[in-house]
C-alpha cells in the first residue's frame, strides 16, 4: 500500500521563546512483534517494528525513544520540546528493515 507508514504530527507552527510545546505524533505501522504465528503455516511471523523514534530541533536530537515489540500498532508518542530559536522540527521513525520515515515542519519563535 502506497500510503503505508504515513506519519501524523501535531506540533505548533509558532511559539514564544522558552515556551514548552506539547507535540503528538502517530504513524501507521503494524509493529509486528515477532511473537505471532501465521495461522496457516504455523510459522513465526518475523519481527518488524519501528525500533526508534527521534525528534530533532535544528538538527539536534531533543527527545528520542527506543521502542520494543510491546509498543502498540500505529505507535503514538506525545512529548515536549522547549522553544529556542526559529527553525525546523524533524521527526524520524526507524524501521527494523532499515527504512526511516520522516516528517519535518518549520517553527517560528517570536
Amino acid at each position: 500500500m502506497a500510503k503505508k507508514h504515513k506519519p501524523r504530527v501535531k506540533a505548533p507552527k509558532t511559539a514564544s521563546p522558552g515556551e514548552v510545546m506539547e507535540i503528538k505524533t502517530l504513524i501507521s505501522h503494524e509493529m509486528e512483534s515477532g511473537q505471532r504465528k501465521d495461522r496457516k503455516t504455523g510459522e513465526l511471523i518475523p519481527r518488524q517494528i519501528i525500533n526508534r523514534f527521534e525528534c530533532k530541533y535544528n538538527g539536534e536530537t531533543v527527545f528520542s525513544a527506543d521502542m520494543h515489540p510491546a509498543i502498540s500498532a500505529n505507535p503514538y508518542m506525545a512529548f515536549y520540546v522547549k522553544a529556542g530559536e526559529s527553525g525546523e522540527l524533524e521527526f524520524l521513525w526507524h524501521d527494523d528493515n532499515g527504512d526511516v520515515y520522516s516528517h519535518s515542519q518549520k517553527l517560528e519563535v517570536a
Binding site: 531533543v62 527527545f63 503514538y76 520540546v81
Partner: peptide, 16 residues
C-alpha cells in the same frame, strides 16, 4: 520503551 530526554525537552513527560 526507553524515553530519552534532554534539557531541551523542557519537561520530563511522555506518553505512548
Amino acid at each position: 520503551i526507553s524515553f530519552h530526554f534532554t534539557p531541551k525537552s523542557g519537561l520530563a513527560e511522555a506518553s505512548t
